[in-house]
Simulated scan of single mutants.
Amino acid sequence: MANINLRPWREELRAEKQKQFVVMILGAAIIAAGLVFLWKTDMDSRIAYQQSRNAYIETATKKLDEQIREIESLKRKRDELLARMQVIQDLQGTRPVIVRVFDELVRTLPDGLFYTDLKKTEDKLSIVGMAESNSRISTLMRQFEESDWFADPSLSNVAEADNRRAGYSQFNLSVQQKTPEPEAEDK
């Protein structure tokens, strides 16, 4: 007798292949979902790591900004202290000069003449005084010319004094103060 297969083998084969296809699709979907999950987890961890680095950099930047402000403040204080030290050194350096200037003012003062007002502006000395005669004023100007500490005397005004100083002339004189050579200071 002949073997005749009456089973629906084609439908079974098709159903089997369809099951395999569905299993393969589900397997591929599960693998793809797993890969997507791993990729997302990796990206999240990288983002978290970068955010922590950014936070560290921001914290370090804030600390550096504070240090920069502190350094600038210290530099300002240092500059102020240096300026104060310079002023003190200038004052210490010019202290003997003032004494010498007053000493020279007394040395150049002829008899019959006295000062009523002295004003110093930078290197210019303005003098207001009283003199018995105009010749005493010219003697004062000659002595200023000969002095190592003064130069360029300039007489701006000579007037008769008020009643309290009868016989005296009031004068306004300006003279440049100069710094003498070192050997002139030793005299």
Rank of each mutant, 00 (worst) to 15 (best):
L6S: 08
R7Y: 11
R7D: 12
W9F: 15
V22L: 15
L26V: 14
I30M: 14
A32M: 05
A32K: 03
F37V: 08
L38Y: 06
W39N: 06
T41L: 10
R46G: 01
I47N: 05
Y49C: 00
Y49L: 10
N54L: 15
A55T: 09
L64V: 09
Q67T: 05
Q67E: 10
E70K: 07
S73N: 11
L81S: 09
A83M: 02
R84N: 06
M85K: 12
Q86G: 13
V87F: 08
V87T: 12
Q89H: 08
L91R: 15
Q92W: 11
R95K: 08
V97D: 09
V101T: 00
L105V: 12
G112K: 00
L113I: 04
T116V: 15
K120A: 13
T121I: 12
T121R: 03
E122I: 11
D123R: 12
L125G: 02
S126T: 10
I127H: 03
M130N: 07
A131S: 03
S135W: 10
S135F: 10
R136V: 09
R136I: 05
I137L: 06
I137C: 05
R142A: 09
Q143E: 06
F144A: 08
S147K: 05
S147R: 03
F150G: 01
A151F: 02
S154G: 09
S156A: 13
R164K: 13
R165A: 09
A166I: 15
S174M: 03
V175N: 03
V175E: 04
E181P: 06
P182C: 00
E185S: 05
K187T: 09
